[in-house]
Nucleic acid binder design. Structure first.
Lengths: 128, 128
DNA sequence: CAGAATCCCCTAGGATACTG
DNA sequence: CAGTATCCTAGGGGATTCTG
């Protein structure tokens, strides 16, 4: 396989130049990875997710969940009762993302302080 | 450790509720992961990156590179010559992202078609 | 409870032109 | 070659209100 001409027919057929671009298109939403991360722990109700993610508005949560649903990553189960109960869970396909999200979590726990150091340092330089 | 009260002091000190949120803040830019993916292959010059990423504008490439630099993930080496030569490479810290980006690539190569199927299916439903 | 509907804003990101 | 400098806009995202 030619290293310099490494294109991906399956991908650019759909307008993606690079595999990573496709993945980002799927999980790149501001809250998607966090939703998935929460769902790794088990199915969650809508307001349960809201409580777990205090900074996301319910509008945004809805939108991101809809996109995850569209891509087949998240299942939405409606219990027909009053008051309503809706449960979100990872599909089998959604579980395929677990390694990625877990490695994102591991990375953050290991390197959070390093990132913050770099940021404050480069901020200090612009200040000076 | 209490599962229900699983907060991360190091993180929410900086305003992050969840580890994954921090990671997304670092690599969540539209092109950052792709840049990193390209740099996994070795150092690259500016226009070399542009050629590898046809869809990114040079303005955006510059901005994303600057942020990656700020966070200490990418190094910028300037060769003092005419015409100018600038080489971007992953720092040691940047290499820590390799597992994540690689798993993103693997995922895409495995599941691209499945994603597309789901998308066209859910599109068909809205059409109907 | 789990949302849909509006309204609105901001900024991430694009297009184009210029430069050391 | 490797960028700045402007200008501009689509849409990502927020706040609020309403509902089955």
């Amino acid at each position: 396989m030619d290293k310099e001409l490494c294109s991906y027919p399956e991908l650019d057929k759909h307008g993606f130049t690079c595999p990573v671009e496709l993945t980002m298109d799927v999980i790149g939403g501001k809250w998607k990875c966090i939703v998935i991360h929460q769902l790794l722990d088990g199915p969650k109700r809508f307001n349960e997710l809201r409580r777990l993610m205090p900074k996301v508005t319910q509008r945004m949560l809805t939108l991101q969940l809809r996109e995850l649903e569209r891509d087949g990553l998240v299942a939405r189960r409606i219990y027909n009762q009053v008051p309503p109960k809706v449960e979100y869970s990872l599909t089998e396909f959604g579980w395929e993302l677990a390694p990625i999200v877990r490695s994102m979590m591991d990375w953050a726990l290991k390197h959070a302080d390093t990132v913050m150091e770099h940021r404050s340092q480069s901020l200090a330089k612009t200040q000076a």
